[in-house]
Computed example of a mutant assay.
Amino acid sequence: MVEVAFTIGHKEYVLSAQPGEEKLLKRAAAALDTEARQILEQAGRMPEQRLLLLAGLMLADRMGGMEDRAEKAERELSRLQSNPQKVEVPVIPDDLKEAMAELAARAEAAAERLEDRLGR
């Protein structure tokens, strides 16, 4: 076991963790600390148990919202995968391509004639 130290709402804690889990514990503690600090900024000092309870509830609420969004995204993905929409790519007819190429050639020729007249 490894001991991990962290702070939540201005109080130091030390917990034991399995080797390799230190980073996860520190990340979770940092999330809880962020919520706790916001509570302390708004409400001022309060008992440690209440602070941890409120911070935990705020995180649970945020997680619930994320779960709802993830479920909605998964449903939309499933719908799209089961019923993919066909996308039609417009095809330019050959005669239109030729006409556009002819217009481009005429425009280039006109530009060259104009440059010659202007002496460039």
Score class of each variant (00 low, 15 high):
1 M>P: 10
1 M>G: 10
2 V>W: 05
3 E>H: 04
4 V>E: 00
5 A>G: 06
5 A>N: 05
8 I>K: 08
8 I>T: 07
12 E>L: 11
12 E>A: 11
14 V>L: 05
17 A>Y: 02
20 G>L: 03
23 K>T: 14
24 L>A: 11
24 L>G: 10
28 A>L: 09
29 A>P: 04
29 A>K: 08
33 D>V: 00
33 D>I: 01
36 A>G: 01
37 R>D: 01
37 R>S: 00
37 R>V: 03
38 Q>G: 07
38 Q>H: 04
39 I>P: 04
39 I>V: 08
39 I>G: 03
41 E>T: 05
41 E>N: 06
42 Q>M: 09
42 Q>G: 05
43 A>P: 07
44 G>E: 04
46 M>L: 12
46 M>Y: 02
48 E>L: 01
49 Q>K: 06
49 Q>A: 06
50 R>W: 01
50 R>I: 01
50 R>A: 04
57 L>A: 14
57 L>T: 12
58 M>L: 15
61 D>E: 11
61 D>R: 11
61 D>V: 08
61 D>K: 11
63 M>T: 15
63 M>L: 15
63 M>G: 15
64 G>I: 15
65 G>V: 02
70 A>Y: 07
73 A>I: 13
73 A>S: 14
76 E>P: 05
76 E>L: 08
77 L>R: 01
77 L>G: 01
78 S>E: 14
80 L>D: 07
81 Q>W: 06
81 Q>C: 09
82 S>T: 13
83 N>R: 10
84 P>I: 02
86 K>Y: 05
88 E>K: 06
88 E>W: 07
93 P>W: 00
95 D>C: 06
96 L>N: 05
96 L>W: 04
96 L>H: 06
98 E>K: 14
101 A>G: 08
101 A>C: 08
102 E>W: 13
105 A>F: 12
106 R>H: 12
107 A>C: 05
109 A>C: 05
113 R>W: 05
114 L>V: 03
119 G>K: 04
120 R>P: 14
